[in-house]
């Protein structure tokens, strides 16, 4: 059993003069839950389209299972949901899943379990065209799981759903992740990714900006929010303090990033020594959202 499920080598897709995905290299290994992050139009869906055999790469390559299987053979062992659920509207839920089993050449024994998992077993004999969007999306998840996939690819699975639908889908993803299925979740919703994923890949304009564990991205030295009676005095103190970096002023409060391990006690003692009267003082850990924004706004190229 190969550990590497999917490897991308300098994968590039151009639509005319627009480069949707630019020299993207990635490795997905078994057992992790990946988040593919990026704003709308950052090349997430195009990337997935290429590895799923529906978009032709302009250059570069990718291989499934270390090249031991052709793409379409590999896809039989993968489950994928792309943007919208696509089924035959005139067939029932059960018929649609049976057809997918025929295509994937897997046993149909799993259908009942999966339909129960997504709460559609009662509607198994209803035509797909009668389903609500939330039900369609849940059927798509059942369809993607019907072959016990090695990797589950989800592209914006909560797009267009109402809050209850979103909640149901998220709960499902967490359940599936807990079972140990490798997942690649593409999303622009950061809290979604933060809650489920162990690793993130950040894309913007088709370029990879970050790849690594979520923890590394959010575990920094943190930042402080400080306000004082005498702003000038505080600013000159902060500017000369060795363990602090960039300073931003917002509504009279200075946001300053720690560049080394620095405790609140240490900093506040030093402020007292400098006789600065503090009226506001907090230490914060950045959220994935703020980290994501800082990565996509400041960095120009992928670090790898």
């Amino acid at each position: 059993m190969s550990k590497t499920l999917l490897q991308l080598n300098y994968l590039t897709k151009k639509y005319g003069s627009l480069t949707a995905v630019n020299m993207l290299s990635l490795t997905l290994t078994r057992g992790k839950v990946y988040g593919l992050l990026g704003p709308n139009g950052s090349g997430k869906s195009t990337t997935l389209g290429m590895v799923l055999n529906v978009v032709n790469p302009t250059s570069g390559s990718f291989e499934w299972y270390e090249g031991s299987l052709t793409t379409h053979q590999a896809l039989k062992k993968i489950g994928a949901i792309i943007e919208r659920p696509n089924f035959y509207p005139y067939m029932t839920a059960l018929q649609n899943l049976t057809l997918i089993c025929k295509i994937k050449q897997c046993s149909t024994d799993n259908i009942e379990d999966q339909l129960k998992l997504v709460n559609l077993w009662d509607r198994k004999n209803s035509k797909f065209s009668t389903f609500s969007l939330g039900m369609k999306q849940r059927l798509a998840i059942a369809a993607a799981l019907v072959n016990n996939p090695d990797l589950l690819i989800l592209d914006e699975p909560t797009n267009g759903l109402d809050p209850e639908g979103i909640h149901q889908i998220r709960k499902l993803i967490l359940t599936i992740a807990a079972q140990g299925t490798t997942i690649l979740l593409a999303s622009h919703l950061l809290d979604e990714v933060e809650k489920v994923c162990s690793d993130v890949i950040v894309l913007k304009n088709g370029v990879k900006y970050y790849e690594g564990p979520v923890k590394e991205l959010t575990q920094t030295y943190g930042y402080f929010e400080i306000a004082a009676e005498n702003k000038k005095q505080l600013l000159s103190f902060l500017e000369t303090y060795s363990a602090l970096g960039e300073i931003i002023e917002e509504n009279g409060i200075f946001q300053v990033v720690a560049t080394k391990e620095l405790s609140s006690i240490e900093l506040s003692k030093d402020l007292q020594k400098a006789k600065i009267v503090i009226i506001h003082f907090t230490k914060k850990q950045p959220s994935l959202e703020s980290q994501f924004l800082s990565i996509t706004q400041t960095q120009k190229h992928a670090s790898t």
């Binding site: 055999n53 052709t70 590999a74 039989k76 295509i103 050449q105």
Partner: peptide
């Protein structure tokens, strides 16, 4: 119905 796309994703080659 975009089922052509889905068929390919499900592992049917073109």
């Amino acid at each position: 119905n975009k089922t052509l796309k889905q068929n390919l994703i499900d592992g049917l080659s073109k």
